[in-house]
Simulated assay, not measured.
Amino acid sequence: MDIGIVGLGLMGGSLGLDFRALGHRVLGVSRRSQTWQRALERGAIDAGSTDLGILSSSEVVFLCPPLGQMVSLARQIIPHLNANAILTDIGSVKGAIVPPLEQLWPHYVGGHPMAGTAETGIEAAQHHLFANCPYVLTPTERTNPADVETLATLITSLGSRLYRTTPETHDLAVAWISHLPVMVSSALILACANGGDRDIYELAQDLASSGFRDTSRVGGGNPELGQMMAQFNQGALLGCLKTYRRSLEDLILQIEAEAWDDLRDRLAMAQRERRQFDLD
């Protein structure tokens, strides 16, 4: 199968590496010629260009730009697609992306691979990035079922765990487990940095270990990605942040009241609830 990938960073490059390893022909497009040339050297694509015309033979095209560029880039791509080509994206928000894209192209299917690292760019691309990770498809009533099945086959061949849900349900779920943690983690880092005493802050930096590393990791990630999460999933994220704020206020009240038994019970509840998540 000829597979087009537009945007050859971590995600697009990793898709290319895996699809080529599975025997597909991968055609890559990037804004800069240096990027697709490096992707070619790394074995992530069979051919590349800055010209969207290279996609004309593609049977499936993966859109891998930042969220804010998704719709405008799709408009540029569509004149170069063959009539039956499937168009999909990897955006982490679907409610703001799916409606305009499915109006632009009858063979569009929304998608979101729940994988990644803190690194970016083609040099960060790696084999098996998507193995054992969730990959969500978000078909609607307008989506062609045959297109969904074609994509499902490709995705499961990557070793991903396939899920199907609506764009709205997807956005609510990822607001809790992806977008909220970015904001909470960022707030933790900023609170430490603005605590008031520079000497204590510098000592804290020296003492920081696994607890701070784990809870601060996503807050130290790509600022543009965090902004896009908030901008395009504003309603769901605000709801999560307000619920989180109430949870923090409850903890503050228990500590102020020295309600240690209640605090222990609350922490025990958190311990039990965490076991419900498939994190191992």
Score class of each variant (00 low, 15 high):
D2M: 05
I5A: 08
G9R: 12
G12F: 04
L15D: 03
G16F: 00
L17P: 08
D18P: 15
D18C: 14
D18V: 15
R20S: 08
R20I: 08
R20N: 07
G23L: 04
G23S: 07
G23D: 05
R31M: 06
R32V: 09
S33I: 09
Q34H: 14
T35D: 13
T35P: 14
Q37N: 09
R38L: 12
R42M: 13
I45G: 10
G48N: 01
S49G: 04
L52K: 07
G53C: 04
I54S: 01
L55M: 07
L55V: 09
S56A: 15
S57T: 14
S58C: 15
V60R: 10
V61E: 02
V61L: 09
V61M: 05
L63N: 05
L73S: 14
A74N: 02
Q76V: 14
I77R: 12
H80L: 04
H80I: 13
N82I: 02
A83Q: 05
N84S: 11
S92P: 11
S92I: 05
K94Y: 00
G95D: 13
I97G: 08
P100W: 00
L101Y: 03
E102T: 12
L104M: 10
V109N: 02
G111P: 10
H112Y: 00
T117K: 14
G121L: 09
G121A: 03
I122W: 01
E123R: 14
Q126T: 12
H128M: 11
F130T: 06
A131Y: 05
C133M: 06
L137M: 13
P139Q: 06
T140Y: 02
T143G: 07
D147W: 00
V148W: 01
V148L: 10
E149Q: 15
T150M: 04
T150N: 08
A152I: 09
R161Q: 12
Y163C: 06
Y163Q: 06
R164E: 12
P167S: 05
H170L: 03
L172T: 13
A173Q: 12
V174S: 03
L180T: 12
P181D: 00
V182Q: 09
S186R: 11
A193K: 15
G195A: 06
D197Y: 02
D197L: 02
R198I: 05
E202H: 13
L203Q: 08
L203V: 07
A204N: 12
Q205S: 04
D206E: 15
L207S: 06
G211Y: 00
R217V: 06
V218I: 14
P223M: 04
P223I: 12
G226W: 00
G226C: 05
Q231N: 05
F232D: 12
Q234S: 07
A236Q: 11
L237F: 02
G239L: 11
L241I: 09
K242D: 08
R245D: 08
S247V: 06
L248N: 15
I252F: 02
Q254G: 12
Q254S: 10
A257Q: 11
A257I: 03
W260R: 13
D261R: 09
D261P: 02
R266Y: 07
A270W: 02
Q271H: 06
R274M: 01
Q276P: 02
L279V: 04
